[in-house]
Structures are given as structure tokens and as C-alpha cells.
Design a protein around this nucleic acid. Sequence first.
DNA 1: AGAAAAATGAACTGATGCGTTCAGTTCAGC
DNA 2: GCTGAACTGAACGCATCAGTTCATTTTTCT
Lengths: 207, 207
Amino acid sequence: MSTVRFAKRESILLAAKRIFLLHGYAGASMEAIAEAAPVAKATLYSHFEGKQDLFAAVISLQCEALLNTLAWAHTEVRDPVAALTAIARAFVDLIYSEDALTLYRVIIGEQLHFPELGGRVYRSGPEPVLRRLSAYLEDLSVQKVLAIPDVGVSARLFLGMLKGDEHFRCLLGQKEGLSEAEKISLVGAAVDLFLRGHGYAESLCAR
Amino acid sequence: MSTVRFAKRESILLAAKRIFLLHGYAGASMEAIAEAAPVAKATLYSHFEGKQDLFAAVISLQCEALLNTLAWAHTEVRDPVAALTAIARAFVDLIYSEDALTLYRVIIGEQLHFPELGGRVYRSGPEPVLRRLSAYLEDLSVQKVLAIPDVGVSARLFLGMLKGDEHFRCLLGQKEGLSEAEKISLVGAAVDLFLRGHGYAESLCAR
DNA sequence: AGAAAAATGAACTGATGCGTTCAGTTCAGC
DNA sequence: GCTGAACTGAACGCATCAGTTCATTTTTCT
């Protein structure tokens, strides 16, 4: 029956994920993965072509998982503050999660070895949010709520404010992640600056 | 005489830099470095304790070199557009340079192995610029040119816009770097949004 | 020139790791 | 209960690599 084989495969992927994300590609050994699965090394090689294949599978799965955590809030054109805050919050929750940071670190470090995985990672978070945000800004622009000369540029600037300095420090290991208070403060400041910068007067934040 | 020994040391560091930044820590072998220096392996070990020591030395040197490329433009309080543009441009030139991107990739990937080097890298670019910018914004705030509730937050948002999405794509290998036109456009958009967002009316950009 | 310091190159140790092989065992399905 | 596919565990081949050793040569300093 294939249900047992399937379970083995899942078990291998789970162990491989743990070990690859913990030690990086070079630091992970196939023996360690087999031991952690737990599965014989021969079994491991009957499910996957080799180390690279297994790594790619793990990363793809993790990308998919991360993308699924994205909270796609409804965006009401009528209330830009709430809509932008919701988009920003979903983005921040995603990219500052421990899972995402770990994934980013591993992929960035191994980017010369696996150039195609960088694209997969980008498409599993930043890109969809960017598209979503651009579409929303386009709405705002068409409906004359905001004056946005270039929707793409503005969307990038907005997401940049959210990922900027703090995220880089997280990647460099200088920061664990963002606390709830930090997230709220960051999102609030970014939304505020963004809306004011685009001439949205009704920004009622008291800061 | 020690001038020859010094030259050997320089030669080793140069070769080590090339190879470490090209292949990463794990992908670089001491034999390859010795061969590229060119120097006998024993000589290599007479200059450095071991692989980790050599790596740390290389990274420190590279950090120092990068920091020295930073163009510290004079910041005139009277013309925020020019001053912010200058700061932004220096920052963008630094963090999007091929050398910096390579360094970031290697250090981020090896961050679990060398946690202290992350701090060194952050202090060799982002941090000094952040401090400089914060000081300048403080000036602007004190002189009532701009209303800035929290200088630190605003500075981070500004730098974030410059490093945001594009930089992440560079780290992930999805982009080579920034063209001159892209840099100008990015800096202009960020300065514009930032100043407008802080109620600076005389922003005369025609965008 | 001669002594001392440094560099060379080549071999060697010890360890790790990828991937394979194979004889024996387990287990689902008929 | 039998059959065949999947799994096991342990060993093996082969390669790479960090770091050491040492006899020989080159260079530097006195």
C-alpha cells in the first residue's frame, strides 16, 4: 500500500526541513536527516534523487506553507487607513515570522548554489503582497482617493518601510523578531507617513 | 625583513576574500585559498590560526573597506531635499554595490556559524547612516523645518524605503543591482514621499 | 659569508559526507 | 499463508577537506 510509503515521505520531509533550516544546506548531512526521520539512508535515496533534490523539495514546501499563512484581509477602498493597515500587518506578520526569517537566511546564503530557489521564495510572500497592494493603490488612484503617479513605485516604498531596517537586522541576527508592540508601531508609522505623503488629509492619527 | 611577510599576508587576505565571497564559507577550501594566494598551506597557517580566524579577518577588512566607500556629504539644514537626497544616494550606492551585496549574502547565510559578524556588518553601513540621518532629522525638527515626532522611527522608515523591496530581490538573486536611472528614481521617490509625509510643502518635484 | 627566520611542497592523519550495495526483514494485499 | 514490494542496517568506495609534519630551499638580517 502506498499510504505507508507516503507517510515515510512526509516523515523524511519533516526531518529534512528541521535539519536544513537549522544548519543550512552544507551543514546538514543526509545521515543526520535519515536518523531524524527516522528512516534508513537507502529509503531516503529511494524517495529523493539526492541531497539537492531533497533540499529543493523542502524549500518549495516551506514556501507554500508560508504563503498559506498570509492573511488576505478584505480591502475596503473607502477606508485606506484600515485597508493599508491590514495589508501591512499581514505582510509584517509573514516576513518577521521565525519560519520566514530562517527560510530567508538559508536561501540567501545558498543563493549561488540554488539560484532558482530565490525566485520561489520571493514569489511566496513579497511578490503576491506587492501585487495585491498595487491593485489596491490602483483602485484608490482611479477613485481619486489618493493621487498616486506610479502605483508600482509607491507600493514598493510602502513595503520597503515595513521591511526596511528592522528586517535586515533580523536577517543579520541582531534581532529576534518583532514584538506585538513593535509591529503595531511600525505599521502605524508606515501607514501614516504613506498616506500623508500622498496627500490623504483625513489621517487622524494623533502621533 | 617583515615587509615581505606583510606582503604575503596581504596576498593571502586578498585571495581569501575572493574565494570566501565567491563560494561562501563552507564552499571555500583552505587549499584553494593557498593556491590562489599563491602560498604554501603551511604559510597560510603560520599567518592565521585557522579557517574561522581567516574568515573573520576577511570579513572585518571588507566591512572596513565598505564603510570607507561611504560618501559623507555635507548636510545643509536649509535644503532638506538636497541633504536627504545626498544621504539617500550615499546609502543606496553603498548597499546596492556588488561588494556589499555579496558580503551581505555570505554573512546572512553564515549567521548561525558566526553570530558576531552580523553585528560587524550592520555597523559597517546601515548603522552609521542611520545615526547620521537621525542627527540630521533632529536638526530639522529642532529648527522647526519638519515636524518629526520620533526621529528614530522616521529615519528607519526612510532608509527602509531605500532598502526595501529591491534590495531583498538583489539578496535573493532576482536582480543584479540598481542602474543609475533606477537609483535616481528610487531616491527621488523616497525623498519626495518622506518630505510630503512630514508636511514639507516646498517639495517642488514635478512627479 | 654565515646564522636565523620564513617559505615551500609534498605527504600524511583523521574525520566527514555523499551515494551505493546487499542480504535479510517487515508488511500490505491477494 | 504466500508473494512481492518496500524498508532496514551495516558496510563500503570514493572524494573532500582541515590541519600537521618535515626535510629542503629561499630569503633576510647581522
